[in-house]
Amino acid sequence: MRLGLVIDLDTCVGCHGCAVACKQWNTSGTTGPLTDYRPYGRNPSGVWFNRIRHYEVGDYPNNKTINFPMSCMHCDDADCVTVCPTGASYKRKEDGIVLVDQDKCMGCNYCSWACPYGARELDREAGVMKKCTLCVDRIYDETLDEIDRKPACVITCPAHARYFGDFDDPNSEVSQLVRDRAGYKLMPEVGYNPTNTYLPPRLTRPIPTDDVRKDSLMTKVKDWTNKTITR
């Protein structure tokens, strides 16, 4: 079994809801708390397992905003695990989830140096490395309803841009999405073989604008007057 996420860059609206849901669930989860520094101060910062960046792809007028959520990719060849000197970082054989044993970590930061995706963050208060657990304390919880046994970020996503599943099963939802939508991995050239896969934006036909009727002189004068008065 190889569990991971599929993230649809076509529908992600960049609301940061997944990051907030992640923080809410995991701060009281197995690797919690996700410490905040200066939460009410001038420069609030803290530990997050999931971060969303926003990019502009292409040049105006053929440009597009892409919202880009990133968390641990649960790589097949995870160097963060092999470089760890204490054995605190490990990759589970049964489902491929990469985890940090909070009782063994000595906070040397070496695994975060080895991670190309910025998935690992040191908790400066606790002195240990923390990272996405793929909500391991949730997806196997049999006291939850079947429908709730998913990572918090996937459940909360209002745009339905996140999918969770087994990449080893060719008929799983995630495998089908990757096939149908030409899913791709980030930075393949560094050779980590990440599990998480991104779906590129769909090719859409541009909405034609040349048949839009031009404003009449009267409308133009009204618009100009309204603008001037508001100002």
Partner: peptide, 29 residues
């Protein structure tokens, strides 16, 4: 040499620019 912002985001057929980094203050990264 090595990876670029294009291979990092997977958009290798167009220019990619950062619009917003998503956090207001510094992070561990």
């Amino acid at each position: 040499t090595g990876p670029t912002m294009n291979t990092a985001t997977g958009f290798t057929r167009a220019n990619v620019r950062l619009l917003d980094v998503g956090h207001t203050a510094g992070t561990f990264l």
